[in-house]
Write a protein that binds this DNA or RNA. Structure first.
Length: 374
DNA sequence: TCTGGGGTCCTAGGACCC
DNA sequence: TCTGGGGTCCTAGGACCC
């Protein structure tokens, strides 16, 4: 059996940790440059404040209801996330950190008649040790545990924040209560298609054949999804030692940028951050891509961003900031068009290998560059 | 009218996730 | 005036090989 432990309104909960007076009050956290809302407490949700909604569209509602507003502080969230994950590791030798606020736990070996009690104990301990409220879903597969977790979150009072989908009957009832678009792995494109087939709930989807899924739901991905919904594990726990295959640092600018000099500075800063992340996992990268996003419309409702990117392959993988910047700068210069209005830039390091596997190339070849326009 | 038959590796792009 | 910032996996198709 597997559990997923998910922190409730994580960023907002982190902010609330240090402001006990905000308990029971609506809180939202804003993205970089305070552009949009990335976390809301239940009280803020109840006011109709939308997730990922632009801040300015919700501003009136926020001010009227005296919602506490925070700019995001990713260092703080990373720190608290680490504490939560360490707590979970004291419960299971196999914890897969799935995102900053979620982890899967392998519950193999736990008494199967005591799973609910175990999960409740896990929840209470985590909340006691870290101050962050969590919801827990337990089931034989990852997809089913996500279904359970969602139901636990939706009805925190009724479920006490824990749901176990163990018996066929529990699984059927859970799936029947879950709209198909809320299944982990079903996104916008698939849910539209599924609705056309009159597949409306997770239960409907579970009852489709594997052949049907292979044809209509992205091949092996669809087959895996259906099997997982039936309780047959196909998405295994990941090795916690796995390294990242791609490291990105990207930002919206606070205000539009027009000058090459500013773009160069921004990209150099992003490379510096990305190289730090790279060295933290003791790796080096061989490919650097740089992208710029423009919006050349002068009035605001013509928001039609266009992305331009270039990449270069280094003669050998490196994690040296200077070297990476040196290779990235020509890309910025080639992408730059005088007079364009830039909204965002980013860098992506890929072809990542562990430091000890770096292949040195004695005869340095000229790097190749390719341009792509979206 | 026809134009081999496999393989492997790489990349771009789509779909999805939080 | 104005809309995060990260990631993963899979597939199709092209290049190249024998």
């Amino acid at each position: 059996m597997k559990a997923i432990v998910d922190c409730n309104s994580f960023y907002a909960a982190c902010e609330r940790l240090f402001k006990p007076s905000l308990h029971g009050k609506p809180v939202v956290v804003l993205s970089n440059n305070d552009g949009c809302i990335v976390s809301r407490t239940d009280e803020a949700k109840a006011l109709g404040i939308q997730m990922a909604g632009p801040y300015y569209q919700n501003k009136e509602e926020i001010e009227k209801n005296k919602v506490a507003v925070f700019s995001s502080n990713y260092h703080l969230y990373g720190d608290i996330s680490w504490r939560v994950m360490e707590t979970l590791r004291s419960f299971s030798p196999h914890v897969e950190v799935y995102s900053v606020d979620e982890s899967f736990l392998d519950l193999t070996g736990i008494d199967e008649t005591m799973l609910y009690e175990y999960a409740v104990f896990l929840k209470h301990t985590t909340e006691l040790w870290t101050g962050i409220p969590v919801s827990i879903g337990v089931a034989p597969t990852k997809v089913l545990s996500k279904v359970a977790n969602r139901l636990a979150k939706k009805d925190k009072l009724g479920t006490k924040g824990v749901i176990v989908l163990q018996t066929p009957r529990q699984q059927m009832e859970g799936l029947q209560k879950t709209p198909v678009e809320d299944v982990w792995g079903v996104g916008g494109a698939s849910s539209k298609k599924l609705r056309l087939f009159n597949i409306n709930t997770a239960w409907d989807l579970r009852n489709m054949s594997e052949d049907w899924a292979r044809k209509n739901l992205g091949g092996v991905v669809g087959v895996r999804l259906i099997k997982e919904l039936r309780g047959e594990p196909c998405i295994e726990m990941k090795d916690p030692l796995e390294i990242k295959k791609m490291i990105a640092t990207t930002r919206m600018f606070g205000k539009p940028v027009y000058e090459l000099r500013e773009l160069r500075e921004a990209v150099a800063t992003y490379i510096t951050r990305a190289a730090e992340k790279l060295r933290r996992q003791n790796c080096a990268a061989k490919t650097i891509s740089v992208f710029l996003v423009t919006n050349n419309y002068s009035n605001s409702y013509e928001y039609k961003p266009a992305g331009f990117s270039l990449y270069t392959t280094l003669p050998f993988a490196t994690s040296l900031t200077n070297l990476l910047i040196e290779h990235a700068m020509p890309l910025v210069e080639q992408l730059y068009r005088k007079g364009s209005k830039y909204l965002k830039a980013g860098v992506i390091l890929s072809s990542i290998v562990p430091d000890d596997k770096v292949q040195f190339n004695l005869f340095e070849k000229p790097s190749s560059e390719h341009e792509k326009k979206n």
